[in-house]
C-alpha cells in the first residue's frame, strides 16, 4: 500500500474524531528511522564510490605506465635482434612477458573497479530516489497530523466551548448583512448627493430669476398693474 492508500484507509475508518492523530507517533518514528537509515546508506555508498573511483584512476595510471614499458621493451628487443644479440633479446622478451602479465592483472582490476563504480552509482541513484520518496511520504504524514492538530487547536482556542465552528449559513448571513449595510451607506450617500444637488438647482434658478421669491413678487406686481390698466 502506498502512503496515500494508507491515509485513505485511515480517513475512511474509525479515526475520524478531531484531534485524534491519523498516524500515530510510532508510524512517524518508523518513517523517520527509515529516512535516517537511507541517509546513512547513501553516505556510505558515496564514500565507497569515491574510494573505488580513486582506485580505478590509480589502476588506469599504472596500466598506462606498464603499456609504455611494454612498448619500450619491445623496441629494445627489436634492437637486440637487429644487432644479432639473441641472448639479450631473450632477456628483454622475458621482461616483456612479466610486463604483459602485470598488464593483464591491472586491466582485470580496472574492469572490476569500473564495474563496482557503476554498481555503486546505480545504488546511489536508487537510494536518492528512495530517500526523496520517504521524505515526501513523511511530509504527507506530518502534514496530516499538523492539520488535525490545527483543527483541534482552533476548537480549543478560538471557538467558544459551547459552540461549534461558525457555520456557512452564519457566514452567509453576515456577508449579506454587511453587504446590505454597505449598500445602505451607498444609497444614503447617493440621496445626500441628490438632495445637495437639488438644493443647488433651487439656488441657481433663484439667482437666474427663474424661480424664488423675487420672481414671485415681480409677477404679483405685473398682475396688479394689468388689473389697474383694465379698470
Amino acid at each position: 500500500m502506498n502512503i496515500l492508500q494508507k491515509l485513505m484507509t485511515l480517513f475512511r475508518g474509525s479515526v475520524r474524531e478531531i484531534g485524534e492523530a491519523v498516524v500515530d507517533a510510532n508510524g512517524t518514528k518508523i518513517f523517520e528511522q527509515e529516512i535516517v537509515d537511507a541517509e546513512s546508506q547513501l553516505k556510505e555508498a558515496r564514500s565507497s564510490l569515491t574510494t573505488v573511483m580513486a582506485k580505478a584512476k590509480q589502476a588506469e595510471r599504472e596500466l598506462e605506465k606498464l603499456r609504455a614499458g611494454q612498448i619500450e621493451h619491445e623496441g629494445y628487443a627489436r634492437s637486440a635482434l637487429s644487432q644479432g644479440n639473441e641472448p639479450l633479446a631473450l632477456e628483454v622478451a622475458e621482461k616483456i612477458a612479466v610486463l604483459e602479465a602485470e598488464i593483464a592483472e591491472q586491466a582485470t582490476a580496472l574492469d572490476s573497479y569500473k564495474e563496482h563504480a557503476e554498481r555503486l552509482k546505480a545504488m546511489i541513484l536508487e537510494s536518492e530516489k528512495q530517500l526523496k520518496d520517504y521524505q515526501r511520504q513523511l511530509a504527507m504524514v506530518k502534514t496530516t497530523e499538523q492539520v488535525q492538530k490545527t483543527t483541534a487547536a482552533i476548537s480549543e482556542n478560538f471557538v467558544a466551548a459551547d459552540s461549534k465552528m461558525v457555520t456557512a449559513k452564519e457566514t452567509l448571513d453576515r456577508i449579506k448583512n454587511k453587504q446590505q449595510e454597505y449598500d445602505d451607506r451607498l444609497e444614503a450617500g447617493k440621496q445626500l448627493d441628490a438632495e445637495m444637488s437639488g438644493a443647488n438647482l433651487k439656488n441657481k434658478l433663484a439667482e437666474a430669476g427663474i424661480s424664488g421669491q423675487k420672481k414671485q413678487a415681480e409677477d404679483i406686481l405685473a398682475r396688479l398693474r394689468d388689473k389697474e390698466a383694465i379698470s
Binding site: 511530509a139 502534514t143 492539520v147 490545527t150 461558525v166 457566514t171 456577508i175 454587511k178 453587504q179
Partner: peptide, 16 residues
C-alpha cells in the same frame, strides 16, 4: 465591504 467573516488559520510544518 467585508468584515472578518471567515478567519484564515495559519500553521507551519517543516516544509510548508
Amino acid at each position: 465591504q467585508t468584515h472578518d467573516e471567515l478567519p484564515v488559520y495559519i500553521t507551519a510544518t517543516e516544509q510548508q
